[in-house]
């Protein structure tokens, strides 16, 4: 476990980054990106989620077991997304 206590200036900096990314992603909704809205929005969301998980949830200074637990959740999600979408997104390839 982390004996390190994250100091408020770190939290304020992370919060500023989260607000800046929120303004960016909402601002981009005014630009006609077509179907790229989802891709760009997801990219920014992943950056924001990393900020929250690494700093607010202290994963950066957590022990290996915590990293494994967090990684397991992501890995299972990856299995569900990759196997499902590898079917639905490729059906056009063999549409006969």
């Amino acid at each position: 476990m982390s004996e390190r206590v994250t100091q408020p200036p770190t939290y304020y900096a992370v919060f500023a980054g989260l607000i800046a990314l929120t303004v960016l992603t909402v601002g981009l909704s005014l630009v006609d990106l077509g179907e790229w809205h989802t891709v760009v929005g997801l990219g920014i969301a992943i950056a924001k989620a990393l900020l929250v998980v690494l700093f607010f949830m202290h994963l950066l200074h957590s022990d290996t077991m915590t990293w494994i637990a967090a990684g397991t959740g992501l890995f299972w999600l990856g299995i569900m997304l990759v196997l499902t979408l590898s079917d639905y997104l490729t059906r056009w390839v063999l549409s006969y």
Partner: peptide, 24 residues
Amino acid sequence: GLYWHFVDVVWIFLLPLLYLTGTH
């Protein structure tokens, strides 16, 4: 706190998928 931040992370993904997928 871990639980609270997780709920926040879920919303971080709901925002672009639900609200920002169309052009406003």
